[in-house]
Design a protein around this nucleic acid. Structure first.
Lengths: 216, 216
DNA sequence: TAGATTGTTAATCGATTAACAATC
DNA sequence: TAGATTGTTAATCGATTAACAATC
């Protein structure tokens, strides 16, 4: 464990490694090289080796990486060797969709509470969790030791929710609302706004510009 | 219009600019400086000026940017001055959630077709669109001139769907399935996998490591 | 031993930021 | 004219990739 600063880019690749390694594990593949990983994940093998080497010497020269061991190590690095409690704020369509991934993401991440501002939603069940009024959020987050909040409320409410989550002592927020949130620097914030993704894709559409290319 | 290569990072910021500018426009703000933009969007003003300058001289020295004009220009850059037809493949919870954003994202992007593999879903309505069998996908995509596909099917089906969309001549894919897809280089692919986002957030959780810090 | 593959250093590449002349 | 702010060049910073000694 060297005490270098690990960049965001590196951290965001770890779950990708983890996912593919789990697949290998299910196929009972015992060992994998950075070469093979790179091929499957469209990444440079040197980059993969470097990423992993930040956290320890997980590989064996001439052999590669032991799949099970590497899975264990990456899970440790990502704090997934313990249960991480998550709260979902906003029980609309998107919130419901995410809560369904609960079983899927059982990398020890668990949605333990769901909140919504609308009285008509409160009391309903969503995957065995009862939707709670947003007024109970601070208290419940603290009681259940929720560490990550997922925001799926309309954009005009997102900042208020973020503020409340922050005051409840949340450590990280995944924000699906299409708006830039301001949170104190000790709260980790990630924007997961797919409208941005979708609009930026449009840039790459051909637009028949190519038709003009009748070059010599 | 200089013919420099524009980086992905630049393109992904354009929709963020656009969104905030629209907000300003609704508030009837006529002019904005890179300074103000940077403040609101947590970006360096020089970066914003540089981003915009790739595409033209949109600002006025000493004054700033005309909000309406800049909106128009960014929409042109992103090809949003024409209707872009989108197909949604996978009518599960996530697919339904995304289709609800249809009204919201009416930046000329429109979901014009929804497909699902499950016979029980086919024929049902989702926001006034009838869910079609996935077998009709290639034909429908071509007939309706769909240019962007959104994949929200289970990960094991995602590659097959991507292949079919590709063969139908789609230009870009937004993939929500947690798997790495392979598509030909002429198809623009963006991964919108929130499980990756969520797992990477866990890295930043405190984990009481800080308690050990009793330094001199 | 020969072949394979890691971990790491150095080289390269690309993106961000600072600085400032131009000019509204 | 004085103040503000752009567009752009140069400087900096950071991330990716190549190369290779170490070693299984």
């Amino acid at each position: 464990m060297k005490s270098e600063k690990i960049s965001d880019a590196v951290v965001r690749r770890l779950p990708v490694y983890l996912r593919f390694l789990s697949e290998l594990s299910m196929r009972e593949v015992a060992t994998v090289s950075s070469q093979e990983l790179g091929q499957k994940l469209d990444l440079n093998p040197a980059q993969i080796r470097k990423d992993l080497a930040y956290f320890g010497d997980f590989g064996r020269k001439g052999i590669g990486y032991d799949v099970s061991y590497l899975i264990e190590k990456i899970r440790q690095i990502l704090n997934l060797d313990q249960q991480i409690n998550v709260a979902l704020v906003g029980a609309g369509n998107l919130g419901q969709a995410l809560s369904n991934y609960n079983t899927y993401l059982k990398d020890n991440m668990k949605i333990v509470a769901v909140f919504d501002a609308s009285p008509s939603k409160v009391g309903q069940k969503i995957n065995s969790l009862t939707i709670q009024p947003i007024e109970d959020m601070v208290e419940t987050v603290q009681r259940l030791k929720v560490r990550i909040g997922i925001i799926t409320v309309p954009d005009v409410e997102a900042q208020r929710v973020a503020d409340q989550l922050t005051s409840a002592g949340i450590e990280a927020i995944l924000n699906f609302a299409p708006t830039i949130l301001k949170v104190p620097s000790e709260v980790r914030l990630h924007a997961a706004d797919f409208t941005t993704d979708l609009l930026s894709l449009a840039y790459y559409l051909d637009n028949e510009k190519e038709n003009d290319k009748h070059d010599a």
